[in-house]
Nucleic acid binder design. Structure first.
Lengths: 245, 245
DNA sequence: TCGTTATTGTAACAATTTGTTACAATAATA
DNA sequence: TATTATTGTAACAAATTGTTACAATAACGA
């Protein structure tokens, strides 16, 4: 990862001008729900992982590639949820600072200071599997829970808010929990995912009955964790084609 | 509407390159559900109403303006539902033909032949109120029901399909029926909207009870249509701020 | 070995919502 | 004034969801 590569990566003629994407990458570890946030070199600026679309790749390909680069894992659940096209959504001053701090010439990369429309996606992953990697312009990428989220650039806080709303609305229509859990998990862990996402507690018995009634779970052996109580069964989701609409 | 104005309207430097929008405008007349489709001059090409985004207007403004121009009415319910960014979604041959047939020079408007990403919106209106107006490049704009839809350009059929899916998914979460009906309507008319959109019949009594239970309807005087039967009440929706997210 | 403790799995019952059937109350018309 | 086609409501049934209760354990320590 050197500066040469950076400037090469951002040649105007390789990309569709005015078009960017941003991703809200949700991670879960059995207990907490967090998202990935980038911090740019020496600027104090925080932002969502994002990128641009090359002329010879589709939008979905560009986003998928970007998310793989940040997380190191392939085959992530991705869902486009909204395109942001406000007049306010460019901050050429901030972008100029970011370029300068990365040793790039703002003049030579003037197209990056112009107005962008951004297509936003959210991704769901089990964050034990992940070793996040900052992008070319950032010096760090970290997991943040919603309570400790730093102030984000431009409209990125609005994007996070909308991502969470969409995730909540989709949660009971699709089986999104599966993407945040390891292969096998207990009913309590599944309930934890749902509660963290929805931000409210559920009744254990009703939750269990409803989940079993969906007929989407396979019961496996019990898991003996060493707790002084009955051991819970492990479950996995019946494999189905993931919906990548 | 003259050719001068057309070419003026499409000056490259006024617009964000690579960015377009398309709109699926649903109309209802108490009986049928239809959408607006454009036909281009002497090309046999059909397409959804769409347009481009000026540098000095937001995406939502651009779309709103475009829909007002086509329908002649302001304050339409509009909802962004998906952005299409496939590699396949430009057809420079077709675009060239459209420009030529409108007396425009493809060379001078080369940016229009390039790849576009399109943000798609759907709109809901009561189509009695509307007198559709073709855009600068089209010679007709007509209402088509889904059964008689002509073959559409590029991925526009996919866009229509997705619009219908989204409308259906949103129907029981939001009160979208209101945008397709006149100010006052009967319970039967409301049920007709729901049935046409969902493509399946509902039980009259359960539908009525559910609608009344939402507490979102105001009951007015009866409507005497001349039928040899009990006259139905008229209802209107309790006014609320329309959700234009 | 055998209570004790903290869960988990299930069943039983209650409350709520949704589906179905029945029927009286009309508007027009003959 | 009887007839016809619909509408508005109520009554009952079925299905879903919410709540409570309780037995079945794993581990631990007396």
């Amino acid at each position: 990862m050197n500066t040469d590569k950076h400037s090469q990566n951002l040649k105007k003629e390789d990309y569709l001008s005015h078009i960017a994407f941003d991703s809200v990458i949700f991670g879960f570890n059995g207990k907490d729900l967090k998202i990935l946030v980038l911090q740019y070199h020496n600027t104090g600026l925080f932002a969502l992982p994002g990128g641009f679309v090359r002329r010879n790749e589709s939008l979905d390909e560009a986003v998928s590639k970007g998310v793989v680069e940040r997380t190191g894992i392939d085959n992530i659940y991705l869902e486009q949820f909204q395109t942001f096209g406000g007049l306010d959504r460019f901050d050429s001053k901030a972008m100029e600072r970011i370029l300068k701090m990365n040793g790039l010439d703002p003049k030579a990369n003037e197209w990056l200071l112009d107005r962008f429309i951004s297509i936003a996606y959210y991704a769901l992953i089990n964050f034990e599997e992940v070793n996040p990697v900052p992008d070319a312009l950032a010096d760090s990428i970290e997991w943040y829970s919603f309570e400790e989220l730093p102030p984000l650039m431009m409209d990125h806080e609005e994007i996070v808010q909308k991502a969470l709303e969409t995730l909540r609305a989709n949660l009971d229509r699709k089986l999104l929990g599966m993407n945040l859990l390891p292969e096998k998990f207990t009913m309590r862990e599944l309930q934890n995912v749902y509660e963290k996402i929805m931000g409210e507690p559920f009744k254990r018995t009703a939750f269990q009955r409803k989940m079993l009634a969906t007929n989407a779970l396979i019961r496996h052996e019990k898991r003996f964790t060493g707790g002084a109580h009955r051991a819970p069964y492990l479950y996995s989701f019946k494999t189905m084609v993931k919906d990548r609409s």
